[in-house]
């Protein structure tokens, strides 16, 4: 049951609904009464993406069509811009891509979802395999159209001592979901960082879902997601950390913090721990609220106007996640993105 299957078969009964526990806050069956026609092939898309100039190579998937995989050979270091584009004529499409990072290789993946068309329905399935000692830093930026439905689902498998660092920057859509499932071997100091940011306005919806399964000893996972919801927007965070039997000395931390800036906005969160081993340190924290009044008061009594003080505090709140991005160029793009999103929303 998935959006991709519904697109491929045309069968709306394949859509996940609120009755599916993992989709309770991102109901697609209740939303989509009809699917748009299949997206036609689209050639010659030339506009630059959000990470233009930062990558050595660009891979474009337009209307669900493009290369089927990216491979980074053992020991090599690559920076790739991976662009999923819904062209102006996009309808419904699903794409699959396999990313192979061989032993000891390094990849900086600058991934973008660029919606130009209107009312499209799209799903991307990514399969990422990291070899022994391989490293991946993945920065995902979504720029979907406000009336689109866009789902991105990633399954990542880590080899021994591999490292995955990810930051999702979500601007939402009519329904948007970025789902990441990580199989974490623990062994040999493999590490995972899964971060997320969402800045939503209008009637946009963004869902950041993660599942990290620790299968071996000594694994570490660090997660931080922050978000801002205004107007009638809705932010969803679902994070699950599973520690399998025997995965001792796992150290897993998860945080989700959201600012609700309007009485009609909504934030839903489900930070889950599922633990089958005893020698573990796992914790999660979750907060939802408005801007800190004391912080605002302090800024204002230092002579900063109300609107500016609010923008400053909000930017600082989100900045913590941006600062954790390792790739310098991408970090600056993310910082600009946050400022622009907040500006657009105010």
């Amino acid at each position: 049951m998935s959006l991709a299957r519904a697109i491929e078969t045309g069968d709306l009964a394949q859509l996940p609904s609120r009755r599916d526990e993992d989709w309770r806050w991102t109901d697609l069956r209740g939303l989509l009464r009809v699917l748009p026609p299949p997206s036609p092939p689209h050639v010659g898309w030339a506009a630059p993406g959000p990470f233009a100039g930062l990558a050595g190579r660009e891979v474009k998937i337009v209307n669900g069509r493009g290369p089927g995989g990216i491979t980074v050979p053992a020991g090599e270091r690559h920076t790739v811009a991976l662009r999923f584009i819904a062209a102006p004529d996009a309808g419904a499409h699903a794409a699959r891509l396999a990313i192979e990072i061989e032993d000891g290789a390094e990849l900086v993946l600058l991934e973008s979802y660029e919606g130009v068309g209107e009312g499209y329905v799209a799903q991307v399935d990514l399969r990422i395999r990291l070899g022994a000692g391989a490293r991946l830093e993945r920065i995902v930026m979504t720029r979907d159209s406000p009336d689109s439905v866009s789902v991105s689902k990633t399954e990542a498998t880590l080899g021994p001592a591999a490292a995955l660092a990810q930051t999702v920057l979500a601007a939402g859509a009519r329904r948007q979901r970025t789902e990441t499932r990580v199989s974490h071997p623990g062994a040999g100091g493999a590490s995972v960082r899964l971060d997320g940011l969402y800045v939503l306005d209008g009637k946009r919806h963004a869902d950041i879902t993660t599942v990290v399964t620790h299968d071996g000893v000594d694994g570490a996972t660090d997660q931080l997601t922050k978000g801002v919801a205004r107007d009638q927007a809705r932010g969803v965070f679902q994070g699950r950390i599973v520690v399998s039997p025997g995965a001792d000395r796992t150290d897993a931390r998860m945080g989700h913090h959201a600012l609700l800036l309007s009485d009609r906005a909504e934030v839903d969160a489900k930070p889950e721990l599922e633990i089958y081993a005893d020698d573990v340190v796992c914790a999660h924290g979750n907060t939802v609220g408005a801007l800190d009044e004391e912080g605002l008061f302090y800024a204002k009594q230092r002579g900063i106007p109300d609107a500016e003080a609010r923008a400053m505090l909000t930017e600082a709140f989100l900045g913590e996640v941006v600062d954790r991005i390792g790739h310098e160029g991408a970090r600056e793009v993310a910082r600009t993105w946050v400022a622009k999103q907040l500006g657009a929303a105010s």
Partner: peptide, 18 residues
Amino acid sequence: PYIEARNASAKFEHEATT
């Protein structure tokens, strides 16, 4: 835990350890 906040003046804090 399930947390559903639908107004800006609500303040929810949750912490869990294992």
